[in-house]
Design a protein around this nucleic acid. Sequence first.
RNA 1: GCCGCGUUCGUCUAAGGGCUAGGACACCACCCUUUCACGGUGGUGAUACGGGUUCGAAUCCCGUACGCGGUACCA
Length: 508
Amino acid sequence: MAKKVRVRFAPSPTGGLHLGGVRTVLYNYLFARQQGGDFVLRIEDTDQSRYVPGAEEYIYECLKWCGLQPDESPQAGGPYAPYRQSERKDLYRQYAEFLVQEGKAYYAFDRPDELDSMRERFKTAENPSPQYDHKVRMQMRNSCSLTFEETERLLADNVPHVIRIRMPENETVTFTDMIRGEVSFHTELVDDKVLLKADGMPTYHLAVVVDDYLMKITHAFRGEEWLPSSPVHVLLWKYLGWEKDMPQWAHLPLILKPDGNGKLSKRDGDRLGFPVFAMNWTVPGTNELTKGFREIGFLPEAFINMLAMLGWNDGTDQELFTLDELVQKFSMDRVHKGGAKFDFEKAKWFNHEWIKKSEVGRLKPEVRKTLEQQGISVNDDVKLETVIALVKERCTFIADFVEQARFFFQTPQQWDLDAIKPKWNEAKQAFFGDVINYLQQQTNWVAADLEHGFKELAAAKQIKPGEVLLPLRIMLVGGKFGPGVFDIAGIIGKEETVKRVSNLLGQL
RNA sequence: GCCGCGUUCGUCUAAGGGCUAGGACACCACCCUUUCACGGUGGUGAUACGGGUUCGAAUCCCGUACGCGGUACCA
């Protein structure tokens, strides 16, 4: 029987959740759901100096908003708890010690300043960043260069030390990446990575292997930036004796900045005027706020859809997918190898499409909330629904409903008079006087009838409808936008329509 | 520097030996609309370069260039 699929998203809680992070979550989630597997959230907080309060809660909130909730997590618990690496601290040391006994790792007592001076000493034009590897190993203070007795004494004296992997000098590590196929590395070019830090915490390298093993992870997806350290991980799986349980790796392509090249960063978003984080993120302490997709009015459906298409497609021309469709159709072998530049214009298009295709009921709570935040009170539920249905196709963001729907609920306070004043005359003034009379006589307030009557009246006065339609719009709406004027009149009602017309007529 | 990974319209991408290299975003034009959108039609626009293999190459192989990633007691 095949092993049950288990995947994990393993962020370190140091700040806002980046687009690329959400995409990694998404691919994990899609794969797990499709395979009937489990999706685990594991918090990789092994660097205590980078602890940021609130960052972990923020991640849960993001996943919740996106609808990508984990089956197991620090919050939800699960059979492999705890899911926070800081709470698993005591677990890791034994594995590192085991590797030392096996001769696959060693103690290193070098102080930070000694490491610096080593790097300084070996630095040349051809080798600008010397590594701690087999070439310098014997010149450093570690259990390879020191005698057994010396090492024992240092350990007994509690001299701060780390445990480093001892990279072999002449091997080739090869594995099959689900996206890239076979990749290989020469071990003599990889450094002796620290496995266990002086504070007793594991580094990512040790923790990811131990926890993936203990948590029975079958497929490990992560960003491409991890590819260069993958030989360390593969070797660790082997040295720990777990080779047959090693997950299948998939290194996802990066999301790049729209201009120039390089990984998309928060800075690029600030610079170019779009969000990079899923939700608003406030840096504790400085209170510096970074805008999120949620807050600028993205629908999670659109956000997810857009992210899914950044590096994957189903081979057809289809671009709009629901989460369920993605679960069905997603496949790792259709994931791109190359990085994708993020295009905010295209992201906006996805959101616009989703607003258009969403049911009124889906939009209603969010639209109501946004309108009310702007001081527009919405008491008539049916009217709100009618309005949403009428204007949603002209909204790219939820916030656009403010402009597009405001005049249905509030009398305009400002009018684009420049649009009508230059061509205004006595005849039009008189005509609108007649319009008011006409409107007041109506007992059956229906848009189509109003339009018909209005045009007949204009014809009777020898006025072309085009001459007076725009003025009417300005009177009702305030500006040159919105749905058909008579639809608007139909919705706001007789009293309000008459009021708006006569109100502005007095100002012309 | 070294190692690894990449490279099709400006952007996201399709086409995994046979095509006038397809779609979408953006842009432009026209139509619809006597507003703004939506919608419709059309247009500009790409296989990084050089060698092979082949009857035939965007597709396979080898170089070159360029880009990115990594080279931390960060993840």
